[in-house]
Design a binder for these strands. Structure first.
Lengths: 163, 163
DNA sequence: CTGACTGCAAACCCTTTGCAGACCG
DNA sequence: CGGTCTGCAAAGGGTTTGCAGTCAG
């Protein structure tokens, strides 16, 4: 990993370094290696895995630097978090086919229905990854309630625990 | 909430109680109320929210009972967890349109591409929930590697932290 | 009645934060 | 050189577990 064999990954790395520098953020050795790792990986490994992957090249790197670097990317709009973010675990007891709307600000998840979306044609590549138990659409956006709040508070320091 | 006004919710509650009883699991007051709450809610509230919602009817219920009840539903195949499960937070630094395959056993997330899926027609109901920043397909299944392991180990006690 | 279940509290683990020294620009 | 960044360690918050009393069947 991190060898930059794929021109696609190299292009993404360029975009990241350019954006980071033009944001007036320092491009440290640690950050560069973490960037390399995350663009080289089509899976989206959890933080611990990224940490272990860069360790050989950054023997003294700490886990919190990995977290901080990933959130930095997030704050610059260069990365998103996967799944309903933070707060707590969520369960879905709705067994019938349905889809999810996820608010990226408050983590709200709402079901919506759409028969045409219930039978999506998946590319053959998917079956090579594994079996398919379910396929649904996940829409990300800002819910009406949060949109209202944004208008009011205009802007505030994003203190990490509330993207 | 929990008033069973919707016949749909009532039907789902019936299915849950039936399945739970036929599994030889005791149907306690606490469990029943938690079931009521989760089928009555089209959003998928986090555990804390469910806890607060049932508290008026179950003044002494504890948070861990809510957790245990939700995992019970999960183990009986009556509920799924939302998003890439447990382990750690995951970030996605891929800015181009793509979709996700999530392994329900190991939490692996892999990107896949499919131009037809990049421009899905969303129902009008979605825009009433909030703005749309992104819409992608999330496929859930068991990845090839986990499928191999399952064949080997046949079955083992699901100790919670490894669904 | 009896085994399963709940509530409590402590343990666990992932994530974040405060601070002093290190380093980029 | 100065302000930012890192590493360390400790705090923080969500989730799970062990145990003794309680309750459904």
């Amino acid at each position: 990993m991190g060898k930059m064999r794929h021109p696609e990954a190299e292009r993404r790395l360029d975009h990241i370094t350019t954006t980071v520098k033009s944001a007036g953020v320092k491009l440290t050795h640690q950050r560069l290696e973490i960037f390399r790792e995350i663009v080289a990986n089509e899976a989206h490994p959890d933080v611990e895995t990224i940490f272990r992957a860069v360790r050989p090249r950054l023997p003294t790197v700490s886990l919190d630097t990995v977290y901080r670097t990933l959130w930095l990317l997030h704050d610059l709009g260069l990365a998103t978090t996967l799944g309903p973010q933070r707060d707590g675990m969520r369960f879905d007891a709705n067994l019938s086919p349905h889809h999810h709307y996820v608010c990226v600000r408050c983590g709200l998840v709402r079901d919506f229905h759409s028969p045409p979306l219930n039978s999506l044609r998946l590319p053959e590549a998917v079956t090579r990854i594994g079996s398919v138990v379910d396929a649904h659409v996940e829409v990300r956006g800002v819910c009406a309630q949060c949109a209202r709040k944004v208008q009011v508070s205009a802007q505030k320091k994003p203190t990490r625990r509330t993207p």
